[in-house]
Structure formats: C-alpha cells, structure tokens
Design a protein around this nucleic acid. Structure first.
Length: 872
RNA sequence: GGGGGCAUAGCUCAGUUGGUUAGAGCGUUUGCUUGACAUGCAAAAGGUCGCAGAUUCGAGUUCUGCUGUUCCCACCA
C-alpha cells in the first residue's frame, strides 16, 4: 500500500468493477424484503451541483446500508426533461448560434432539445458515477421516455374522464420571458421599490368632480373596466352606479361597490383591471365586468393601448404617467414598496393574465393526500416539514398544467374542426369519434414538467402496466430531497400515488437543507460562488466529499460548504488508510485466528467492546436516517479508539518476539478493522472497498458483505470499564510530564498505591509504552519511596513519579491546588445533588448509586491530594 | 398578515424519549522526526448553551413570553 491515501488510484477502477459485477442491479427476490429508493431526477439542464451531491450521497449511504443488511435494495436513477428550464437553455444556445426558435418547426426544435438531453443526460450520469452512486443503471429512466410518456398519457386521460382535468379561461401567471403560462408554485415574490400613482378619473359629464384611484400599474388602465369603492364608504357611496371616464382613451366605465376596496388604503378607490390582476378578476366576476387584455405574450402593449401598442409594458408605464401628468389627471406619486412575482426560471416579472389553459382540479386530490400524512402513512423526517406540506395542501388552488412550449409531453387532446368535438384518448385518434371527420388538430401545448415528475415513483416501475416490479418495489421506502421542492414535487407525488396507485408513493420523506457557500450565501450562477462537486472530487476524492457532506449535519438544516471541512475529511481518509496499512503490514507471516478462539487481553476486550457499541449506535442512527450522528460515531471510533489507543497498545505485542502474541494481536486488529470498514462503507464506499480487498482473509467486495450485527457476548462491559482506568493512568502520566516540563522521551519510573494491583501489573507494559515510563510498579505506601515525588490521584489509585530535584515545589503546589479546586467543585456538585431529597426519592436508583459512587471517589481523591500538599 | 428555522468555544457546527464533569472540526498555545500516518502524536487554553419566567428531584434539551437573525407562504390596489 502507498504511504498516503490517493483516491485517484482506485475510485474509478472500483466503480467499474462494481458495475461490471452487477452489484447495483436489483432483481425481485421474494426471499428478501425490498427496499426501494427512487432518485429525484436531476434536470437535464446542465450539470450536478453541491445540492445534488448531498442528495445523492444520502441516498447512496442509505441504499448501501440496506443492501449490506440483506434487503433487495433498489435505487432507481433517472433524469427529468425539465420542460421550461431546458427549453430556455436550448433557445439561448440556438440564439448564440444565430438560430431563432420561431424560424424552426416544432420537429426541428425538438431535435435540438433531444441533442441537448443526450449531451447533458450523459454528463449527469458520469457525475453520479464519480460520486460512487450505487444505482441500478439498467433501469435508468427519463421523464420523456416511452414508459413515462405512457404513464403520463394514462393519467391525463383518466383524470380527464373523471372531470379532474378541465380547460378554461382563467387568470393565470404568465411569464413574458418564457412566453408561457406558469403555475402558482413557479412564481417567486420579491420586494421591489416602486411608486403609487394617484390618478383622477372624472365623473362622466363633469370636468371637475372625479374619483382618484391609487395604482402601482398605470399602464394597465387601458384594461380598466370599472372603479370600485367600498359600499360602506360614505365618501363615495353616491357615485356607485355612475360612470367615470378613463383618461387618454376617454372610455366610460362604471363605479361599483365592492368589499375589495379597502377604505384605509390609498384614496379608497381602486381601478378594476380584471384581465391583469387576480383580485380584480374576482371583482369582475362578481359584477359581470368585461375583461380586457391589454398586453401581448411578450409583455408589450397591444391594440387596446391605442398609440402605445407595441411598446414594452415598463416603457408604457412611464409614458402613460407622463401623459397623465400633462393631461392633469396625475394628482401625485408616492414611493411604495410591494412584492412583485417573478418567473422562477427566467426571472422576468410575471404578468397576471386571462388565458385559456388546462387545469387539474385540486380539491378532490388534496383531501386524501392530507389524510395520508395525518395518518402517518407518509412521514416527514424531520417532522416539522409536514407543516409546510399541510400549509400548501390546505390552501392549494387548481393547478395550471398547460405550458406554451414545445419541449415536453404534448397535451393528448384533439379538436375536430368539423363538429367542434374535444377528443382525449389513450391512443391517437385517426378520425373524430363523434362525426367521423378527419379534420383533427392536436392541442399545441405541453404539460408542466412536474406533471410527469409527479408520477415518477410508479411510472419508473412500469405503470400503467401491472408489472411484477411495481407490485414488489412499490410503495417505495424513502424519498430523499431538499425542502425547496416539497410543493413542486413531494406533494404532487403523494396525491398522484394515492389517485393512480391507491397507495402512497413512499413511507418516509427525508428532507435535507441547502448547501451554502462559506459565507452562508446561497450558491448561485449569478454570484459565481458555486462549487463544482467534480472539482472537489478531483482534489480530495469522492469519499472525502461524501463524508464532509454528511458529517455534523442535522436533518433538514442548511449547511455551509468549505474546503477546510473537506480537507479535514480527507485527513480522516488518510487516517483510515494508514491504520489499515499498519494492520496489513503486520499480518505478513501471521496466523489469523478467530477472536473467540484465544485469551484476549484487557485492551483487546476494550476495543472489541467499543466496536460493539459502534455497531449498535451506527445501526440505530442509520435506521433513523441520522446520518450525521452515524458519521460522528465512526469518526470517533476510528480515530480515537482504534488509532490513537488500540493501535498504539498493540505495538507492545507486535514488536515483541512472541509469535503467538503477535498472531493474537493481529487477529484482533483485523477483526476490528474489517468490521469498522463495513460500518464505514455506506458513507465512504471507495476507500473501504479498496482496503477490504487488501485484507489477507477476505474475498470479493465489501459492498456485498454483511453489515455487522451487535453481539452482546462481545460487549465485555466490565472489562472495558476496568481498562478505562488504565487509560486514565496513561493520561495522568503524560499530563505530569507536560506540566513538570519533563521531556516526553525521558523514561520516568511510576509507582502506584492502588487497591487494584493486578490491573497495574497486567497492564504495566502498556503504561510504560504509551506514557514513556521505565519501571511501573505497585508499592504499599508512599513511604516506600525515598525520592522526592510528584503525585497524581486517579480513580484507580495514586501514582508517584520520582523526579528528584527537577520539580519546583511551588509549581507542584500550584498544580495540586488546581486539582484540588476541580475535585472540590465536583464534590460540591455531587453533594448538592445527593442532599436533595427529591433527587434521592424520584431519580432512578441506578443514577443515585452512580452519583454516590462518584462522590465517594472524589472524596477519596480529595483526601489524597490534601495529603500530597501536606507532604510538600 | 400567517407559519417555520436558527441563536451552544474565536469561526463552522453536532448534541432526537430531560439524567456522567456540554462535544467535534478548524483556529490558537506548548512540546514532540515515538518503528501506520507531520494529511501526524501528546498536552492545554477557550462556553453564565440569546434574555426572562414556568414545569421538574434535575433543563442546552420541555412550555410561555421577549430580543436578534433568517427562510417559507399569502399578499392591499
């Protein structure tokens, strides 16, 4: 083995081997319990970012754990066509090449899209592989492949036939940048500084009397079809029923009384533009007002804006305000901040607009979906995210699913030109089923990308076919995703699963946070602060990156990425590497035995006991999806217990001349290392397998080995506790050396006055080696020593180190006094606790006894320290 | 307007049924070429766990209020 950990030498080789060996493939096995994870499909818009890296690492860790535990573990990968997002990218790319989308036919454009998809889809797969993802590539899916398309068609037609999909003219969110409708969930609101324009609309027939409306959007006045006042507003009551005249175009519109007008806001009069404002749309419906759309799809004004036709909406806003000022209708303007909706993809300001679109009726679907979470058929981890889900589901409005795009699932509806019939069928119709006419045209629009993602947990498993896989692997077990797509995706999968499969799509939803940069900012293209996972893998290795994304992270919390964190993890990998190197080097020529086949030393029992605790705790943590805690347990076990302590302890045996002793030591080392590697494998698959294959007694890959099981026979609780005393002694000697300025290399003699003489004699060699001692001996009392000594009180007994004249009495007194303070504090604390009658009466007996024992120990220590001080 | 999150060592964060002397990494100080590893070893300094109450024998952990910060949802033109 190389002296330092060099992941580049083996990561790719191992991944290829895993893949070729078929370890990733999940085939239905009725003797096994299935465990299914469906990968949230990354968009084929580009490459994976740090957020994906977290998501994939968590899934891979879980699936590897379950696979080793003996489940039939399926992790099904795939990618998403991301309708609007990809189309925007392709349009931009074409524009760079001087090609306009409008100049292409639908078919030509789609060809470009598929090219894009193939390019980026492949790239994403390679990135996933670099991360070590153990997904079943033979099942890779794409939201627009034949299988998924079939599912989409089936679902659309079923919902249509049930009346849950309908078409209608509604006020929807229109993105002038993407020139398509978008759903409520796709709108992001941002606070903007703007103005409130106060405009006077004269009463019909009067050139002085009028109503002043306050508006943030003067350019929409061409679409005003009323002015509303609150019916209870004494100031304006009398005008209800009269007309006011829209300036510039001199059009009369009625004054209506409507609760929507807030008497306290602005002037109390509000202009009503049903075609361009959701509230006004409602007012319009109540008063049967005309709806006048004044803009084109690209955000320019249309013919209703008269001379402003063709002008951009913002330019028009300025121009209208200017003209109103000249006309004398503009009373005043005042600064005003308000929230403006933006498209989550292209960031243009969204235009509310009346338009004919397709919708999914949400109420009947939402109800059971809320119930499923209520009944805990689906559980959010952490649970607080259920609230976010409820909040959205409880208030959900009908879902606008049509998009004026080309890239996506085309809506399966045809219109008969002869009889006007609307046709929605599972197979493309050749003739109109109503009149037999052949004059059919298909709806031009495509579906919201989330319509197909909503079916992902079952469309990927064969739906609508009743496949064996679907029966075996569905419902899936856990969905791992970020909190930012609970509305977009998680919620929609839940109601879709219930509606089309009659079963929830997954049992647990494991939510993680966002990866931020070192300063806590969101990683984004515009800030240029994104970190490419591939760069990190290139520099530190995939295992280091994986570990850094899991360690010290609480579920659902955002995390900060920092190079130093990955570096620390790389150091841990190096530690694992070198510890293994040590073990393997010492195996040469040795006989490996079962750890139950010979007499174990105290130290052996201690490390085996620690290993059992690690097995128990890691398994528990993983079952609860507490990946961060599990990592921490392994980090501490590996570095502190195994490397810092146990490996050092084995050197006594391994550098001795006793062959059997060496065999024993190596056997325990191997046993612990092998188990530790297995425990670590789900987190850091590459390094653990690379080492595992080098171990002298293993065959095959660690990824298909059995996950360790807790064995209570190997827990050795008593022995482990006793050995803790030896460790305490070693630390005490080291401490004295540092405090007295004694060179670490200088071998000092240590004498003990202890009740447990055997513990000292048995482990004298360890104490001598790890603390740098000459003689390590028991004595009956301090009086047996002639020399001047430094003393230290430990839980096992008092130790004395003769230091001759080297030690300064004042310094020693200072040290002892410090220790006295510490112990006295402990006595005070324990004493207080035990004097509390409530504690004695109500606390568990075990705890009270432990506290009593502690108090006793500290009291003894105190006596001994006082004695030391006196002797000085 | 409604609902969350966070507030613990200089920095970044763990701390999940309330119960050892509150932990880690990075940074800092001191000392070490100890035969796996200087991507290392040993030792150490550093915390009234945001504030005020409450519950409890016992609170970093539960509850209430407050302050700061941050996010989500809704959105008055």
């Amino acid at each position: 083995m190389e002296k330092t950990y060099n992941p580049k030498e083996f990561e790719e080789r191992l991944y290829n081997d895993w893949e070729q060996s078929g370890y990733f493939k999940a085939v239905r096995d009725d003797d096994k319990v299935p465990f299914t994870v469906i990968m949230p499909p990354p968009n084929v818009t580009g490459q994976l970012h740090m957020g994906h890296a977290v998501d994939e690492t968590m899934q891979d860790t879980i699936i590897r754990f379950k696979r080793m535990q003996g489940y039939c573990a399926l992790w099904l990968p795939g990618t998403d066509h991301a309708a609007i997002a990809t189309e925007v990218k392709v349009v931009n790319e074409l524009a760079e090449r001087g090609i306009k989308k409008d100049d292409l036919t639908r078919e030509q454009f789609l060809e470009h899209c598929w090219n894009w998809k193939n390019r980026y889809g492949e790239r994403i797969v390679n990135q996933l592989k670099k991360l070590g993802s153990s997904c079943d590539w033979s099942r890779i899916a794409f939201t627009m492949d034949d299988r998924c398309s079939k599912a989409v068609r089936e679902v659309f037609v079923n919902l249509y036939n049930k009346g849950l999909i309908y078409r209608g003219a509604r006020l929807i969110n229109w993105c002038p940048g993407c020139r398509t409708a978008i759903s409520d969930a796709e709108v992001e609101y941002e606070e903007e500084n703007s103005y409130l324009w106060y405009i006077k609309y004269f009463i019909e027939g009067s050139d002085s009397e009028g109503l002043v409306v306050a508006t943030t959007r003067p350019e929409t006045m061409f679409g005003d079809t009323a002015v509303a006042v609150n019916p209870a507003d004494e100031r304006y009551k009398k005008y209800i029923g009269k007309n006011v005249i829209l300036p510039i175009i001199n059009k009369p519109v009625p004054v209506v009384g409507d609760e929507h007008a807030d008497m306290a806001f602005g002037t109390g009069c509000v202009k009503i533009t049903p075609a361009h404002d959701p509230n006004d749309f409602e007012v319009g419906k109540r008063h049967n007002l005309e709806s006048v759309t004044v803009m084109n799809g690209d955000g320019t004004m249309n013919g209703f804006a008269g001379k402003y036709a063709g002008m951009d909406r913002y330019a028009c806003r300025k121009a209208v305000a200017e003209e109103l000022k000249i006309l004398g209708n503009l009373i005043k303007t005042e600064p005003h901040t308000h929230n403006v909706g933006h498209c989550y993809r292209c960031h243009s300001a969204v235009e509310p607009r009346v338009s004919k679109q397709w919708f999914v009726k949400m109420e009947p679907l939402a109800k059971p979906a809320i119930g499923a979470v209520n009944d805990r058929k689906v559980t959010f981890v952490p649970e607080r995210f259920a609230k976010i889900y409820y909040n959205w589901m409880d208030n959900v409005k009908d879902w606008c699913i049509s998009r004026q795009l080309w890239w996506g699932h085309r809506i399966p509806v045809w219109y008969c030109k002869d009889c006007g019939k609307e046709i929605c069928l599972k197979d493309d119709p050749a003739v109109c089923p109503e009149c037999g006419g052949k004059n059919l045209t298909r709806d031009e629009d495509v579906l919201d990308t989330w319509f197909s993602s909503a079916l992902w947990p079952f469309s990927t498993l064969g739906f609508p076919e009743d496949t064996s896989d679907l029966e075996y692997f569905y419902p899936t077990d856990v969905l791992v995703t970020g909190y930012d797509i609970i509305f977009f995706w998680v919620a929609r999968m839940i109601f879709s699963g219930l509606e089309h499969m009659r079963k929830v799509p997954f049992r647990d939803v494991l939510i993680h946070g966002l990866v931020r940069d070192e300063q806590g900012r969101k990683m984004s293209k515009s800030l240029g602060n994104g970190v490419d996972p591939l760069d990190v893998i290139d520099k530190y290795g995939a295992d280091s990156l994986r570990f850094s994304l899991l360690q010290g992270v609480a579920p659902g919390n955002d995390m900060r990425y920092s190079d130093s964190k990955v570096e620390a993890c790389r150091n841990f990998m190096n530690k694992i590497w070198n510890a293994s190197r040590y073990v393997i080097m010492n195996c040469e020529g040795r006989t490996i035995k079962s750890v139950t086949g010979f007499k174990l030393t105290h130290a052996d029992k201690w490390i085996i006991s620690r290993l059992q605790a690690a097995i128990r705790d890691v398994t528990l943590a993983l079952n609860k999806f507490e990946l961060g805690i599990a990592c921490q347990i392994m980090y501490d076990f590996m570095w502190s217990d195994f490397c810092d302590w146990y490996i050092e302890l084995t050197k006594a045996a391994l550098y001795s001349e006793d062959g059997e002793r060496k065999d024993n030591a190596v056997s325990v080392l191997l046993f612990v290392l092998e188990n530790a590697l297995k425990l670590l494998h789900p987190f850091v698959p590459f390094i653990t397998d690379e080492i595992y294959r080098s171990l002298p007694h293993t065959t095959g890959s660690i990824m298909v080995s059995d996950f360790p099981r807790y064995n209570s026979k190997l827990a050795y609780k008593k022995e482990a506790a006793a050995f803790g005393g030896v460790m305490e002694i070693i630390k005490a000697v080291r401490e004295i050396k540092v405090e007295t300025g004694c060179a670490p290399s200088k071998k000092v003699n240590v004498y003990f006055v202890s009740d447990n003489k055997r513990l000292i004699t048995t482990n004298a060699e360890y104490i001598a080696r790890l603390a740098g001692c000459g003689n390590v001996k028991n004595i009956n009392s301090k009086d047996d020593l002639d020399e001047r000594c430094v003393a230290k009180v430990t839980g096992v007994g008092t130790l004395y180190i003769p230091t001759g004249e080297l030690v300064d009495a004042d310094k020693e007194r200072e040290r002892l006094n410090a220790e006295l303070d510490k112990v006295t504090g402990e006595i005070r604390r324990a004493d207080g606790k035990l004097n509390n009658t409530g504690f004695i009466a109500k606390a568990p007996k075990q705890l009270v006894d432990a506290e009593r024992a502690k108090l006793e120990k500290f009291r003894e220590m105190r006596e001994k320290i006082l004695e030391q001080l006196k002797n000085l």
